[in-house]
């Protein structure tokens, strides 16, 4: 595997580091986030399909709400908020 660099992210206000070249969904799961969004009746959800279909992985990215975490690569300095 190619040399894997790290990137710094802010997740729910905390500064963390993540492998570069992975998706936001993978990064959050690797950080042990078991709640990406809250469903309309309040239950926690995490990615189901991993391919952009189910919309269970919606998070806020750089202030932009309802983004599919499984479709977006992490970028240095990215701000991510879960539990919308």
């Amino acid at each position: 595997m190619s040399v894997e660099s790290e990137v710094g992210l802010t997740v729910d206000g905390e500064t963390v580091s993540s492998a570069a070249d992975i998706t936001v969904a993978a990064a959050l799961l690797n950080l042990g986030k078991w709640r990406f969004r809250r469903s309309v009746s309040g239950s926690p959800r995490t990615p189901l399909c991993g391919m952009g279909t189910c919309h269970e992985c919606l998070v806020t990215v750089d202030g932009d709400r309802h983004r599919r975490a499984c479709m977006i690569p992490v970028r240095a300095g990215m701000r991510i908020e879960t539990d919308d």
């Binding site: 992975i22 690797n30 189910c54």
Partner: peptide, 13 residues
């Protein structure tokens, strides 16, 4: 998902 796990693995999980 089964494919979902595959996709997440490929994307770095």
């Amino acid at each position: 998902g089964v494919g979902g796990a595959q996709a997440l693995l490929k994307s770095g999980m």
